[in-house]
Every structure is written in C-alpha cells, then in structure tokens.
Design a protein around this nucleic acid. Structure first.
Lengths: 117, 117
DNA sequence: TGACTGGCCTCATTTTGCGAGGCACAATGA
DNA sequence: TCATTGTGCCTCGCAAAATGAGGCCAGTCA
C-alpha cells in the first residue's frame, strides 16, 4: 500500500519513538538491508518520509544490541556485500507490545484532538 | 471522554512533538491555566498521561512566543493568582495544520504496522 | 577520468521530554 | 501553634532521538 504525498510535511518531532516500531514491522515481512529499508519507506510513503541514515543505523544497532534483531552479511553476485537485518522471536514479542502502545498513544491524542475528519 | 488505563505505559519518545497539538486542542475548548491543564489531561487519560511541568511550561511559553496563544493573570476570590492561556487566531490556524499533519503521521505508521486490531 | 549510484557507517548539533528542585501561599488538622 | 498537604508558578541538568553533514569504499557508465 502506497500513501499519497501529503500536503503538509510531517513534523520530525512526531516521528520520534516511532522508528523501532517501523523497523520491526518492516522486518516482519522478511530480512532487509539498510539501503533497502530506506528505499522501501520512501516509496511506500510516497516520498514523504525519507528515513535518514543517521537515524536508521543507530536504531538498527540498538535493536541488535537488545537482540530484537540479528544481522548477517551476504555477498552479491558482483562481489559486493550487504548487511541484512532479520527479526528475532524477542523482537516479535516486543513488536506486539509496541503495537499495543502505539494504539494507546493514538487513542490518547485522538481523545483531545477529536476523531479524524 | 475518558480513556481506560492502558496496560502498557506509553513511551515518552512517542509523546514528543504531540504536546503542542494536545495543548492547542485543549485550549480550543477555552482558556486554561497550567495546573488545570495537567489535571485535565491526567483525568481524561485515566491517569496514564501525567503531563509533566517540565514539559508543559516550556511548551506553553514557546507557543506564546510564537503568538499562537496569549496569557493573562487572573486573581481568584481568595486573592491567589492564576495564569490563564488562551488560543489565538494564528494558533487556530496552526492547529488545523497540525491536525492534518497528525492524521498523515498516523496513516504513515499504520501503513507499516498495519491497521489496528 | 569523473560522476553517479549503491552501501556501510559516525559525529556534532538541536529538540524535546523528564526528574528534581525551588518558591510561594492557602487550607487542613493534630 | 505548627506541620502537612494541596495549589500554582517556574527553572535547570540530563537523556534520548532525529537531522545534516560528512567519511569511506566499490561498482557502472560516459
């Protein structure tokens, strides 16, 4: 599902904290490498959200440090290497909790902002 | 509308950026003073979200500096003073934009996380 | 040769919330 | 009387996260 490009750019401050949720959700669909993640996010959001490398890699490494994901290098046919990240069982569980949290967060804000137009 | 207390506490990082949206939405219902805002949020979220003073007052002052809200002191019957904050026309406009942004943000995350259970 | 894309990463800065604290006064109650 | 609690304003140092900029290297294509 590809979103249309929104008229208003999304405030970066809103994005905070949603990155692990995004990453784990994505990796749920299968292992991916960094560059691929960025491209996927960019395309699916209609170009709105360009996940920055400076946000992505630290987030991935942190998820790996907590063993929610693992990584492995894979050599392509042309000899170049890519580092793939794959979700782990612990990551699955964490994702479930995060999703719940996300829904609660949305409910909360909605309670003040009012339901969507 | 009062929300039930969620099992999972909401990650503070998620809250980032949503504060101005919350404040402007609240002030849309009428002028309020700081302490009152905190109490209102606490009650309406079923006690989950206790807006901290260290987040509230700086946020209010910033909104005032940008003239999205104004403030005025009002003396109570017992002689004590309260500082009320009221939304301004510019704040109304900003709120409208923020709401749109919020919806887009939710759509975006939902596009990865999937629709709510 | 040089430019562009793919691909990994780090680092300083900025923004924001949090926790803790300070200050002041009223009402309550032992 | 005095201590506690509640009301009500605020600031400050810290921590977490995203950004923008940059570095590094290897293919590809003109």
């Amino acid at each position: 599902m590809i979103l249309p490009k929104p008229e208003v750019p999304v405030d970066r401050e809103l994005l905070k904290g949603s990155t692990p949720l995004l990453l784990l959700s994505l990796l749920c669909e299968g292992p991916m490498y960094g560059y691929q993640i960025i491209e996927t996010v960019r395309q699916r959001t209609g170009g709105t959200y360009t996940l920055k490398e400076g946000a992505l890699y630290p987030a991935l490494h942190k998820l790996e440090a907590t063993e929610f994901i693992t990584s492995y290098w894979e050599t392509q046919e042309n000899g170049r290497e890519r580092r793939y990240y794959a979700i782990q069982p612990a990551g699955q569980a964490f994702l479930t909790a995060k999703k719940k949290e996300w829904n609660q967060f949305v409910d909360m804000v909605q309670a003040f902002v009012g339901p969507r137009a």
